[in-house]
C-alpha cells in the first residue's frame, strides 16, 4: 500500500492505495464519488473522464499513485441539481443526454475544451469529444450543448 496526497474537487485527500489501484477505483470506491462511470475496459468510452491538473484523463487508464500530488476534478466539482453549472444547464436545455451514463464524462471533456478554447469551432468540439462515446443521443445535441455552453459562459466572462 502507498499513501498518496492529492486535491480532489478542492479538498485535500490523503489515501492509502494499492499500487494497482486505478484512479477511477479510488474515486468511485475509495472516495464515494460515483458520478464518474466505467463503461469499458479499453479506454475507449470516456465515461470515466475527469480532469487531472486541468487536463482530461480517462480515470480507468491512470493509476491512483500517478495522481499523487495532483489536482483532480470530477463531475461532483461542477454544479448541483439546484444550481447547475452552465455546461450542465446547456446539456439539459439542448437535450444533450438521455440515459445520462456517459454525460459526466462528456461534461468534463467539455469543461477542459472550453477552458482552452472559449469559442470552439465545430472541429474543435468534435476533436474534444472523439474519445467520449454516447449510445443514446446521436451526438448532434451534445455538440449543440457545447456550443450553447460556450455562448453562455462567454456572456458572463
Amino acid at each position: 500500500m502507498t499513501r498518496i496526497n492529492l486535491n480532489v474537487n478542492g479538498q485535500a485527500v490523503s489515501h492509502e492505495v494499492e499500487n494497482r489501484t486505478l484512479l477511477i477505483e479510488l474515486l468511485r470506491e475509495g472516495l464515494g464519488l460515483t458520478g464518474s462511470h466505467v463503461g469499458c475496459d479499453s479506454s475507449q468510452c470516456g465515461c470515466c473522464t475527469v480532469l487531472v491538473d486541468d487536463q482530461t484523463v480517462k480515470a480507468c487508464t491512470m493509476l491512483a499513485v500517478q495522481a499523487d500530488g495532483s489536482k483532480v476534478s470530477t463531475i461532483e466539482s461542477m454544479g448541483t441539481p439546484g444550481n447547475l453549472h452552465p455546461i450542465q444547464q446547456a446539456f439539459v436545455e439542448c437535450h444533450g443526454l438521455q440515459c445520462g451514463y456517459c454525460t459526466p464524462g462528456m461534461i468534463m471533456s467539455t469543461a477542459a475544451l472550453l477552458a482552452e478554447h472559449p469559442n470552439p469551432t465545430d472541429a474543435q468540439i468534435e476533436h474534444a469529444l472523439e474519445g467520449n462515446l454516447c449510445r443514446c443521443t446521436g451526438y448532434v445535441n451534445i455538440v449543440a450543448s457545447v456550443r450553447q455552453a460556450a455562448a453562455e459562459i462567454n456572456k458572463t466572462r
Partner: peptide
Amino acid sequence: VQRIEDPTLVTGKGVFVDDVS
C-alpha cells in the same frame, strides 16, 4: 418540457447499480 430526470443525471447524482454498495 425539459426532462425531470436531467438535473440528477448531469450532476453525477444518478444511481446506477454499480454506484450502490
